[in-house]
């Protein structure tokens, strides 16, 4: 299959990734059947991860690797987890994608990779203070479309 990203996009993304100083692990979860966008998503992420030495990807199957999926609360395919790294250990910030991150979501993915790498959410101080005080689970599900 031909690359999904053209050379111009690759160049631009490589440029913004140049500021990345800490590694990010992208966990990809696919499934064999009934997944229209698993192959494209895996290829897209493979191409993105190839644009920086700080990025690594690991590939899982939602069913066969159910233990890993459960560990990262992944229940959809294609699914992505953007995890930071502390030495060899992964740091799960709870940042996930379900479905192919193309179109608008492609830039969200690039920005999120940069944020996870830097460990800086970019949020206001007030928002951060509020979030630090939370003591119960919060699941934010942001519905988006590529266009």
């Amino acid at each position: 299959m031909a690359d999904l990203l053209n050379d111009q996009i690759k160049g631009q993304v490589r440029d913004v990734f140049a500021e990345m100083q800490a590694p990010v692990q992208v966990l990809f979860f696919g499934q064999k059947d009934n997944c229209a966008y698993c192959d494209d998503t895996q290829q897209l992420v493979t191409e993105v991860v190839g644009l920086s030495d700080q990025l690594e990807m690991s590939v899982y199957d939602l069913a066969k690797n159910a233990d890993v999926a459960a560990l990262y609360n992944v229940d959809k395919a294609p699914g992505l987890v953007l995890a930071g790294k502390s030495g060899d250990a992964l740091v799960d910030y709870g940042v996930r994608y379900a479905g192919i991150p193309s179109g608008h979501e492609f830039s969200s993915l690039i920005n999120d990779l940069l944020r996870v790498s830097s460990g800086d959410s970019g949020l206001d101080v007030k928002t951060r203070e509020y979030l630090k005080g939370l003591e119960e689970p919060v699941l934010l599900q942001v519905f988006v479309t590529p266009t």
């Binding site: 609360n73 940042v95 379900a98 479905g99 689970p137 919060v138 699941l139 988006v144 590529p146």
Partner: peptide, 9 residues
């Protein structure tokens, strides 16, 4: 405590 999931609708 917070998990965020971007879901392609």
């Amino acid at each position: 405590w917070v998990q965020a999931e971007a879901i392609e609708a």
